[in-house]
């Protein structure tokens, strides 16, 4: 009875994920090795193309910068939220959750209005006399990074608020009682205890920005393609399915490598689990 229930209950989800996700993705990856020119020919082609490797490096660069900025902003903000009294804290959390629940398209679109040629930023700078010509801020790495940071900061804030609230109050108080000034407590107690959470947050943001599609589509355009937009373009515009599959395979490998390595490190650094 138990044996039947145990396996039977997990069976539908297991079958669904296996047949509809694992197998299709594996097939996609497998097709990249079936080219007549050689098993790895599509990969050689990818890495010999300056255009495509540029996009890969740009994607990695944007993802890393986004992650770093979101980490700093998210951690400092979460630290402030964690100290807030109850009511203020709920308001702050609502303010962070609201953008998070608002879609990617809407949030990226906001930056089109802000950064566009006739956007708010340009018109404010013009009317303040700081610039005489509108700047072209859209379709740059900068515009993509700003929008991505905007996208991921709320996620980071919520993740890290949870992490910081999980640090027991008496451990922080023990530090003070032993004579540690607030700044020493921050660097010697709070920060080290938050590291595993910081890694989890960083992985979320890195993979999210590395694989993003809508934001680079809107704010990067043709000029600033990322892996996600490149994949879409190869698949749906030029119908180069093998090329698209190659990009897909590279994205899968990088994502899974980053997740598994970083989560292993996070587990190693977690002092609670020995």
């Amino acid at each position: 009875m138990n044996k039947f229930a145990k396996w039977g209950l997990t069976l539908p989800a297991t079958i669904a994920v296996t047949l509809l996700l694992v197998v299709p993705v594996l097939i996609t990856i497998a097709t990249t090795f079936g080219e007549p020119k050689g098993v790895f020919s599509t990969y050689t082609a990818f890495f010999n193309s300056g255009f495509r490797t540029n996009i890969l490096y740009r994607t990695l660069r944007i993802a890393l910068i986004t992650t770093a900025i979101s980490l700093v902003i998210g951690f400092l903000t979460a630290y402030v939220i964690a100290q807030m009294p109850g009511r203020l804290k709920s308001i702050a959390i609502i303010a962070a959750v609201f953008p998070l629940l608002t879609g990617v398209v809407v949030r990226s679109f906001a930056w089109l209005i802000i950064l566009g040629k006739n956007g708010i930023l340009n018109s404010s700078l013009l009317s303040l006399g700081i610039i005489s010509e509108p700047l072209s801020m859209l379709y740059t790495e900068g515009s993509v990074i700003v929008a991505m940071v905007y996208l991921f900061v709320p996620l980071m804030i919520l993740t890290l608020t949870g992490v910081l609230e999980g640090i027991p109050r008496d451990v922080v108080e023990a530090s003070a009682s032993l004579g540690a000034r607030p700044i020493a407590t921050f660097f010697q107690v709070i920060l080290p205890l938050a590291v595993p959470g910081l890694i989890v947050g960083a992985v979320l943001v890195f993979t999210g920005s590395f694989t993003s599609y809508a934001t680079p589509q809107l704010l990067g355009g043709e000029q600033m393609m990322m892996m996600g937009t490149l994949l879409y373009q190869r698949a749906m515009v030029t119908f180069d399915w093998v090329g698209a599959s190659t990009i897909a395979a590279i994205m899968v490998v990088i994502t899974i490598a980053v997740v598994s390595i970083m989560s292993r490190i996070a587990r190693r650094l977690n002092p609670m689990a020995v």
Partner: peptide, 16 residues
């Protein structure tokens, strides 16, 4: 942090 009092906590509060 300036009081110089030794404190032993109920849940030990060791730095993990």
């Amino acid at each position: 942090h300036a009081r110089d009092i030794g404190l032993v906590f109920q849940n030990y509060a060791l730095f993990p």
